[in-house]
Simulated assay, not measured.
Amino acid sequence: MLAKILQPLIVKSFIPARKTLSRKGDNGKVLVLGGNYLYHGAPILSSIAALRAGSDLVYTCVPKINVMSTRAFSPNLIVVPLVDVKLTRGSVQKLLGIIPKELDSATMGMGLGIQDREAIKILIRSLLDRAVMISLDASCLVPEILPDIQDKKVVVTPHAGEFRRLFGEMPPDNVKQRTVMVEKYAKDNGVTILLKGPTDVVSDGTQTYLNPKNIAAMTVGGTGDVLSGVVAAMLAKNKNPVQAASAAVFVNGKSGYLAQKKYGLHIMATDLLDFIPFAMKSFDKVK
C-alpha cells in the first residue's frame, strides 16, 4: 500500500474542532496508568502531555509509593493510587471500581511494574467493554495481549525492541522495509501500530502514515511517555486510531523540533511538554 508522509493539512483534518459551548469533560477524560519505584516520572509526563494536547480531565493512576511525588509535581493531575506496588489482579479490580465509568481513552504501560500479566489482560478487556479507546506502551507490550486487542481499535506504541517482544521480529532500519513489516503485523493482528523511530511509522494495515523527524535530541528518555499522553488525548477526540496516532506523532515530533531549536541537543522530555501548545496552535479549531 502507498504510505503517506504526514503534512500539516492532513494532521489538521485528524484533529476535531473544540466546541465553544463544551463543558468540562467534553474534550476528553483520560486515564494514565504507569510508574513504579524506579520510573515515577513516566506517567507524569504522559498525563501533562494529555492535558497540554487538549484533554479536560486526566486521571493518573500510579502505585501508592509514587502518589505523593506525583501529586506534588502538579495540581492539575487527579491522582489515583494503585493499591499494590505492581499491577495485580486485585489492584485492577479495585482500580475499576474507582475510575469514572465514562472514560474516553486510556494509555497504559509507561514505567509500569506488572506482577501478573493476566491483570493487564483483565484491565484491557474491562476498558474495552466500556468503549474506552486504548493505547498501550512499554511493559504492556507483551504477546499475551494480542488476542484481546485484535480488531478492537487499539493502538500499540512500541520502539524497535518492544516491537520484537510483541511480534517476535526485529524491525529493519530501512524505512521502506520497516513500513512493510509494520503494515503486515498491523493487518494480521487487527491493531494500529505506531512504531517509534527517526521516522515514525503508523499503520492499521489499510492506511499508513510516515512521520520523518530525524531529531537527534529526541533520544532523551521520556519523549515516548510524552507521545503516549498525546496519543491518549487524540484518541479521546478522534475514535479513528490510525488518524489519532498519526496526529499524535506529528505533534510530538513538532514539539521535539521546537525544543531542539531552542535548546540544541540538550533537551529534556519536560521541554516537549512546554512546546505542545505551540505545536498544536495551527491546528486549533473552534465551532
Results as ranks from 00 to 15, higher is better:
Pro63Gly: 04
Leu146Pro: 08
Ala53Tyr: 01
Phe278Arg: 10
Ala269Ile: 10
Val83Met: 12
Ala106Asp: 02
Asp271Tyr: 00
Pro63Thr: 03
Gly229His: 12
Phe278Trp: 03
Ser46Tyr: 04
Arg125Ala: 14
Leu51Glu: 02
Met68Asp: 00
Thr206Leu: 07
Ser139Gln: 08
Lys239Ser: 15
Met280Lys: 06
Ala245Thr: 11
Leu166Lys: 08
Phe278Gln: 13
Ile65Arg: 11
Arg18Gly: 01
Asp271Trp: 07
Asp56Ala: 10
Asn214Ala: 14
Ala72Cys: 10
Ala50Ile: 09
Arg164Glu: 15
Ser126Met: 01
Cys140Val: 12
Leu195Phe: 04
Lys261Gln: 15
Leu82Thr: 00
Ile65Lys: 13
Thr192Met: 00
Arg89Gly: 15
Lys237Asn: 15
Val155Met: 04
Met181His: 08
Leu210Asn: 00
Ser126Ala: 15
Asp225Thr: 05
Gly205His: 01
Lys281Ile: 11
Gly90Asp: 13
Val132Ile: 09
Thr199Ala: 04
Ser55Phe: 02
Lys285Gly: 08
Ile276Gly: 10
Ile114Ala: 02
Pro277Ile: 11
Tyr59Phe: 15
Thr60Tyr: 09
Gln93Trp: 02
Gln177Pro: 00
Val231His: 12
Lys86Val: 08
Gly25Thr: 10
Lys121Leu: 11
Leu273Pro: 13
Met268Cys: 09
Met108Glu: 02
Ala53Thr: 06
Ala119Cys: 13
Thr157Phe: 03
Ala119Pro: 11
Val251Leu: 13
Leu128Val: 09
Met170Cys: 00
Gly34Glu: 07
Ser203Gln: 11
Leu9Arg: 14
Ile193Tyr: 10
Ala49Asn: 05
Ala245Pro: 08
Asp84Cys: 10
Val180Ile: 10
Pro143Val: 07
Val201Asn: 02
Phe283Pro: 06
Arg130Lys: 14
Ala279Cys: 13
Lys64Pro: 00
Met108Phe: 05
Thr179Tyr: 14
Phe278Thr: 11
Tyr185Val: 11
Lys86Gln: 09
Thr219Met: 06
Ala217Arg: 09
Thr157Ser: 07
Val191Ser: 06
Val156Pro: 06
Asp225Ile: 06
Asn36Gln: 02
Lys254Met: 12
Met218Pro: 04
Tyr263Ile: 03
Asp129Leu: 09
Asp104Gln: 02
Ser228Ala: 15
Ile10Thr: 15
Leu21Ser: 15
Met110Asn: 09
Phe283Gln: 01
Pro75Lys: 01
Val58Gly: 05
Val154Asp: 03
Val156Lys: 07
Asp129Gly: 05
Gly264Ser: 02
Phe73Pro: 00
Gly222Ser: 12
Gly168Thr: 09
Pro143Asp: 02
Ser282Lys: 12
Ile124Gly: 06
Val175Lys: 05
Ala42Asn: 03
Ala245Leu: 09
Asp137Phe: 10
Lys213His: 14
Ser22Asn: 14
Thr60Lys: 08
Tyr59Ile: 01
Leu33Val: 08
Ala42Ile: 09
Tyr37Glu: 14
Lys24Asp: 14
Asp271Asn: 14
Lys19Met: 11
Val220Tyr: 06
Ser139Ile: 13
Ile98Trp: 11
Asp151Arg: 03
Ala3Gly: 04
Gln207Trp: 12
Pro172Cys: 04
Pro147Asn: 08
Lys4Pro: 01
Gly97Arg: 12
Val80Met: 12
Asp116Lys: 01
Leu146Lys: 06
Thr88Tyr: 14
Met181Gly: 13
Phe14Thr: 06
